[in-house]
Simulated assay, not measured.
Amino acid sequence: MTWAADARVLGTLAAVGWIISRGGDRRQRLVANHVAISLTAAVMLPKIMKRAMDRTRPDRVVVGEDRRGVGTSGQPHDSFPSGHGVHIGAIVSALSWAYPKKTAVFVAIGGALAATRVAVLAHWTTDVVLGLTLGTAIERAARRVSGARRGSTRA
């Protein structure tokens, strides 16, 4: 389940959605543009931040029964912030903006995905919470770049 928030998976889905949207109406193109801009920024920011931070992942620290048989994730000192958390925050925020009646569903799915990062000991809870917060902030800032405004997704 944790792979659903991976940059390669989300990037592929966003690219396919963007290509398909070119044949759609104005609203579809606007939403696809906004998701692509938000996700691109959400993929780049954690990579930059991880270069400046040096937090050890819990899968390198936790030993014994608490490990529950999990493997290791990524680079050992790339725990902060959770890139998956940033991606989830940005996508959930963008989809909630585009489809406000489905916000609760998006938040529930995003929360479950984010929790997997803690469950597999890839990140500390604080890494994921800050990642979600950063992703949301990125998406909201991206609204200015993408032309996404309140009510602009109405058909």
Rank of each mutant, 00 (worst) to 15 (best):
W18E: 00
W18H: 11
W18N: 04
I19P: 01
I19R: 12
I20P: 10
I20R: 15
S21Q: 11
R22S: 11
G23M: 11
R26E: 13
R26G: 02
R27P: 00
Q28T: 07
R29L: 07
L30D: 11
V31K: 02
V31T: 06
V31A: 05
V31W: 01
V31F: 04
A32L: 09
V35G: 01
I37V: 15
L39F: 08
L39K: 09
A41R: 03
A41C: 03
A41V: 03
V43I: 15
L45V: 12
P46S: 02
P46V: 00
K47R: 08
K47E: 05
K47H: 00
M49N: 06
M49Y: 03
K50I: 06
R55S: 07
T56L: 07
T56V: 08
R57I: 02
D59W: 03
R60W: 09
R60G: 00
R60H: 10
V61W: 02
V62F: 06
V63M: 01
V63A: 07
G64K: 06
G64I: 09
E65W: 12
E65D: 15
D66E: 13
D66M: 12
D66R: 14
R67V: 13
G69Y: 01
V70A: 01
G71Y: 04
G74Y: 08
G74E: 05
P76A: 07
H77C: 01
H77S: 11
S79H: 14
S79P: 14
S79I: 12
F80Y: 09
P81D: 13
S82K: 05
H84A: 06
H84S: 15
G85V: 00
G85Y: 00
G89A: 11
A90K: 06
I91A: 09
I91M: 15
V92K: 09
S93T: 10
L95N: 04
W97C: 10
A98P: 05
Y99Q: 12
Y99E: 08
P100H: 06
P100W: 04
K102I: 08
T103A: 08
T103K: 02
T103H: 03
A104Y: 13
A104H: 05
V105P: 02
F106S: 09
A108Y: 11
I109F: 12
G110M: 10
G110H: 05
A112F: 09
L113T: 07
A114M: 07
A115K: 02
T116S: 15
T116G: 14
T116N: 07
R117C: 04
A119W: 11
L121G: 05
A122D: 08
H123W: 01
W124T: 02
W124C: 01
T126A: 15
D127Q: 09
V128N: 14
V129Y: 04
V129E: 01
L130S: 10
L132G: 15
L132R: 10
L132F: 11
T133F: 09
T133D: 00
T133G: 06
L134Q: 09
G135M: 14
T136F: 13
A137W: 04
I138K: 05
I138T: 05
E139H: 08
E139Q: 12
